[in-house]
Amino acid sequence: MGTPAIPHPVHGVRRVTMTRGARRVLEAAERLFYERGIHAVGVDLIAAEAGVTKKTLYDRFGSKEQVVVEYLAGRDERWRAFLARYLDDHLDPARTTSRDRVLAVFDASRAWSAEYGSKGCSMVNAHAEISDPAHPAFPVIAGQKEWMLALFTRLAGDVDPDGADRLGRTLMLLHEGALVAHGLKVFPDPFAHARDQADELLPAS
């Protein structure tokens, strides 16, 4: 079987049209939110860093909460696109096994985190600050993790059809643990360690 298609991000989440001013706001917000945290960054700072007025920010987004939605949804979309490209570029359909496809997700996360994730997973970090399901960004956070679980479960089904749910959850836990350990810098190269553990779990294909 081929690598599962990368579906569109969470449906039902309201998005805004990106004008030039909105993009400037979002670029500033993305950097500030990831580096400093969501609650620590106010609209005054975002507007100042973007070189726009607060009125422009509110005209384009309506609220800080919507800026957070766009920040997280954008990160999610870029990760999904990155993963799809990585799997396409690094897996030869003629020679790739089901085990290879599972392990490649860990390799992709390692590559993404080295380039874009020095402070760990943006969704995990955001959830530490946003735990209220009523917050408009909550579905983006939860949806991204649900999607990762579904991806691992589908891939696990190619390796072990009868144990796909259990194996998918275990792979997800290894992956999430690596993300957290990377962000906290608990020990070197947690993705390689998680990949090795996943490799030991997977039956031969």
Rank of each mutant, 00 (worst) to 15 (best):
I6K: 03
I6W: 03
P7N: 01
H8N: 02
P9V: 00
P9G: 02
V10G: 01
V10Q: 06
H11M: 08
H11L: 13
V13F: 04
V13R: 01
R14G: 09
R14Y: 10
R14Q: 14
R14M: 12
R15T: 15
V16G: 09
V16T: 14
T19K: 10
T19W: 06
R20K: 14
R20C: 06
R20S: 15
R20A: 15
G21K: 00
R23N: 13
R24T: 03
V25A: 10
L26D: 04
E27Q: 13
A28Y: 10
A29R: 05
R31S: 08
Y34L: 08
Y34N: 11
Y34A: 11
E35V: 14
E35C: 05
G37S: 08
I38T: 02
A40V: 05
A40D: 13
V41D: 08
G42L: 06
D44C: 00
D44V: 03
D44N: 07
A47Q: 06
A47N: 07
A48F: 04
A48G: 02
G51T: 02
G51P: 02
V52H: 03
V52T: 09
V52D: 00
K54E: 03
K54I: 00
K55I: 05
T56K: 10
Y58D: 00
F61P: 07
S63K: 10
E65I: 04
Q66K: 04
Q66M: 15
Q66I: 04
Q66T: 07
V67A: 09
V67Q: 10
V68L: 09
V68I: 15
V69Y: 12
E70G: 06
E70T: 08
Y71K: 00
L72N: 09
G74S: 08
G74A: 09
D76A: 13
E77G: 02
W79R: 12
W79D: 02
W79E: 11
A81D: 12
R85T: 13
D88E: 14
